[in-house]
Design a protein around this nucleic acid. Structure first.
Length: 876
DNA sequence: AGGCACACGC
DNA sequence: GACGTACGTGTGCCTC
């Protein structure tokens, strides 16, 4: 069976251009439209496996339609030059892929597609049209489907006859009538003034076509509507004509010319390389290992059988190869060094049994350059081996220079520095099921390449940090912090298995009961955990009103269910079921699964090089999202206990650190004063925003003020605020405006920071952390708005992250200096959790707030609250 | 294996 | 006038 794909090249390129940020390659050529176009094209080809393909383009400015109506597409803005320059690459790309492209004077891409679709239908082809333009739906037929791009670029909706009818309640051949009536502002097609989609469909359903409507005009209900139709009679017919695709355009391509066979040519590889489409290179199976770049260069190295002075030097790049993500007691595959004396591969046994090597590792004067040093440090800690002198972490440097860089893996960083002899781990070892770990020379070669690349990258990254005024952030904050985090991770948190298990049993009983109740109320049994099945039960069987839809069906999210609570008793049961189910699966069963067999503790990993704001994240398990807001969930914290008898848990958190940071950086008088007097900040905000005295602040006013403060801290939009308060967007916008009027310093800051971001291309925090915001100049309103909010928010959230990180370093030092046994265990963004012997608690009560409050000096005081108890739950 | 919907924390 | 809107992690479902 012949299968033909017809692509609206101009339309897809436009879509891609506006959907993606303005990427460019290192020659400064814009590539976003080419990239989007290519991913779209490859996806379609992979999925459909066509026998014939054609990409049609619009040619020139005028078409035969302009003769009929010279204002046709008159409101179109000129194609931005950033897009125009990309068309030549798209042409090159298609040629390299062996895909036919075609354009013809006086006709649009639509007409070429229409003409070929008709021919293909006659010849018994299956045809698929890919476009972003709903007009093409008129081509849908028994053997012609149309794929419309949804938001984004690779997402499409496939329309066959049934789907068109489902969506528009008319047959595809009536799409032109629909457009004739409703017009199209983007093509400047007038239509009938005052008739939109709803009315047009109603008319077409009743009468058939535009011709039919005008024939029976007197039967149209509604005087006004009749008048409108009469007034714009000519425009209606003209619009229909303009919307009609020409199916007999004088094209000189034949279906036979469009034959297509999938192949990856060297031209295509070269083009992808030029454009720097790395993921696409991988996708077409271009293997980095066999890339000539890497293979060209052979690097000499020695395979060490016994470590001696000849191998050791300072500084050295040190590789401790651990392949598992979870490095807690993972295997060490091998080690490698690169330094002024050479390159050395040291097999694991050789290294870890060598006292010379271990002494060198422990020697703080022997400087080590590492990549993800915390991973190396913790892996060795589990074997009771200490490393000191870790002064430069390549991954950390890359993260600080640009946290948005999609991969901070070594081969990517090295390539950015034009070092090409290193392979990525995925390429070398293979990923997933295909992973093979070679031995001997081959492994050694890979590891010394990494070490050599690190050694070479180090001075370049150091220079970049210095140029960015980030070297002290790197050397005095993040590097020392990684050692503190390594200790916290290795120490772990004791957890009571028994407590979790008994809570789990209780939960499961409740869940079973709830499940029974729900089945009874529903009158059927189904999988409550399946949003799809749940949606069917609620909205089809029980006929509850549909409040929100997701792209795959009905939304059953908590905010939707809450609105339905009064409609049916089943809703609150489902909400309960969800809550309990979450507790059981994520927190009870999830935590039980990650108790370390050797220690009986939980050892999380803090990712220190991930978030865009500078916060940490926590995985395997995530200990930064243990429930607290609802009592049932909060009880999970009872399972977190001290690791020793007669010890206690101690928790300390910054009070309103983000808003204090805001008061400081915005230098807002009123906000500073509020904090100096230790006022309840949400009440104070309510007073200022609503213009009332303290006594007259109602709880609703305080709740709204709190949400506004929340919004300021997290950079949410008026829409986000409206969602959280269940008010209209307008009201939310008004709140934000009033807030900014009440705090002119904040308003000024918000304006200045956006301005500065536009000027510099990035924003910074208190300690010079950076976040680049390329979208700040985007023509796309959404992208720009988001970038603006990010510009306002990142210095606030990021500076707060800087402060607690600094406090952690001071805290670790203070505990050592004071020779205390207490352990710092966790950080949860504005909170530190410790365990300590009971007799140290009094001391902690003094030193923890002291250290945290004095981590930095701001224009407002920092305030720390603390508490302690037998479990994390009791430390509240 | 990967996406989606959902839910937890800050 | 619509767009689709804090960040992170983990779970179960569902499709491929």
């Amino acid at each position: 069976m012949n299968k033909l794909i017809l692509i609206d090249g101009s339309g897809i390129a436009y879509r891609a251009f506006f959907a993606l940020p303005l990427l460019n390659n290192d020659k400064g050529v814009y590539t976003n439209a080419v990239y989007g176009f290519t991913t779209m094209l490859m996806k379609i080809i992979e999925e459909e496996k066509p026998s014939h393909v054609l990409v049609a383009f619009d040619a020139g400015k005028t078409t035969f339609r302009h003769k009929t109506y010279k204002e046709y597409k008159g409101t179109r803005q000129k194609t931005p030059p950033e897009l125009s320059e990309q068309f030549s690459f798209i042409h090159e790309l298609l040629d390299a892929m062996g895909i036919k492209r075609y354009e013809i004077e006086n006709y649009e891409a639509d007409d070429i597609i229409g003409t070929l679709a008709v021919q293909a239908e006659k010849e018994g082809f299956e045809t698929k049209v890919v476009t972003g333009d709903k007009d093409l739906l008129q081509l849908v037929d028994d053997h012609v489907t149309v794929s419309l791009t949804r938001k984004g670029i690779t997402d499409v909706d496939d329309y066959d006859k049934e789907k068109v009818y489902e969506r528009y309640e008319i047959t595809p051949d009536k799409i032109i009538d629909l457009k004739g009536l409703m017009g199209d502002s983007s093509d400047n097609i007038p239509g009938v003034q005052g008739v939109g989609e709803k009315t047009a469909i109603k008319l077409l359903k009743q009468f058939g076509s535009i011709e039919d409507i005008y024939q029976s005009l007197e039967d149209v209900s509604g005087k006004k509507l009749k008048e409108k139709l009469e007034n714009d009679r000519e425009k209606a017919f003209l619009s229909k004509e303009l919307a009609t695709i020409e199916k007999h355009a004088p094209i000189d391509v034949k279906l036979d010319d469009l034959q297509y066979e999938y192949k990856v040519t060297s031209e295509l590889i070269d083009l992808f390389k030029d454009l720097e489409f790395k993921t696409l290179l991988e996708r077409v199976g271009f293997d980095e290992v066999i890339s000539e770049d890497a293979e060209e260069e052979t690097l000499e190295f020695e395979m060490v059988t016994e470590v001696n002075e000849q191998h050791l030097a300072s500084p050295s790049a040190l590789v401790v190869e651990v392949l598992e993500d979870n490095y807690h007691y993972a295997d060490i595959v091998g080690l490698a060094l690169a330094n002024e004396k050479g390159r050395f591969y040291i097999p694991t046994e050789t290294a870890l049994n060598s006292s010379i090597f271990k002494e060198w590792l422990a020697d703080a004067n022997q400087k080590k350059i590492v990549f993800d040093g915390k991973k190396s440090i913790v892996s060795l800690k589990w074997r009771d081996i200490d490393i000191n002198g870790v002064t430069f972490d390549i991954q950390m440097a890359s993260y600080l220079i640009d946290p948005s860089e999609s991969s901070h893996d070594l081969s990517a960083i090295a390539k950015r520095k034009h070092i090409k002899f290193v392979y990525s781990d995925d390429a070398f070892y293979g990923k997933g099921a295909k992973r093979v770990i070679p031995e001997g020379e081959k492994l050694g070669d890979h590891l010394i390449r990494k070490a050599e690349a690190m050694l070479k990258c180090q001075p370049l990254l150091k220079e970049e940090l210095e140029n960015n005024e980030q070297y002290s952030l790197f050397a005095e904050l993040e590097m020392p912090l990684s050692l503190v985090l390594a200790e916290m991770e290795e120490k772990g948190v004791k957890i009571s298995k028994e407590t979790l298990e008994s809570m789990g049993e209780e939960l499961r009983e409740k869940l079973e009961q709830k499940q029974k109740d729900i089945y009874e109320l529903a009158g059927t049994s189904f999988n409550i955990n399946s949003p799809k099945q749940l949606g069917e039960v609620l909205f089809e069987k029980l006929n509850l009103p549909v409040i929100k839809k997701t792209k795959t069906g009905y939304s059953t999210s908590a905010d939707v269910l809450e609105k339905l609570e009064s409609e049916h008793d089943i809703i609150s049961e489902i909400l309960d079921y969800r809550q309990l189910g979450k507790l059981n699966s994520t927190y009870i069963e999830g935590l039980l699964k990650v108790i370390h067999p050797k220690t009986g503790k939980i050892h999380t990993r803090f990712n220190q090089a991930l978030t865009q704001t500078g916060r940490l994240s926590s995985t395997d398990p995530n200990l930064q999202n243990i429930p607290i807001r609802l009592e049932e969930g909060r009880k999970i914290r009872k399972a977190f206990i001290p690791s020793k008898q007669d010890w206690m848990m101690f928790s300390a958190d910054y009070s309103q650190i983000e808003l204090r940071v805001l008061a400081h950086i915005a230098n807002d008088e009123s906000l500073i004063e509020a904090f100096e007097h230790e006022m309840d900040i949400h009440t104070k905000t309510a007073m200022d925003v609503f213009g009332v005295d303290k006594e007259d602040v109602t709880s609703l006013m305080r709740r709204h003020a709190k949400a506004v403060n929340f919004g300021i801290v997290y950079g949410i939009s008026d829409y986000g605020l409206s969602q959280s308060l269940n008010i209209t967007r307008k009201e939310a916008g008004a709140f934000i405006d009033r807030y900014l009027e009440s705090y002119p310093g904040v308003k000024q800051y918000m304006e200045d920071i956006v301005q500065k971001a536009k000027q510099d291309g990035f924003v910074t925090t208190l300690l010079h952390r950076r976040r680049y915001l390329p979208d700040i100049t985007s023509r796309n309103f959404n992208r720009r708005s988001f970038a603006e909010r990010t510009a306002m928010n990142t210095p606030i959230q990021g500076s707060a992250a800087d402060i607690i990180k600094k406090a952690m370093i001071h805290m670790a030092k203070r505990l050592k200096d004071e020779r205390m046994q207490a352990n710092m265990l966790l950080q949860v963004h504005d909170e530190l959790i410790f365990e300590a012997p009971k007799d140290e608690i009094d001391k902690l009560k003094t030193i923890v707030p002291d250290v945290m409050e004095n981590a930095v000096k701001l224009k407002v005081p920092l305030k720390v609250d603390f508490s302690f108890g037998d479990t994390w739950y009791d430390a509240k």
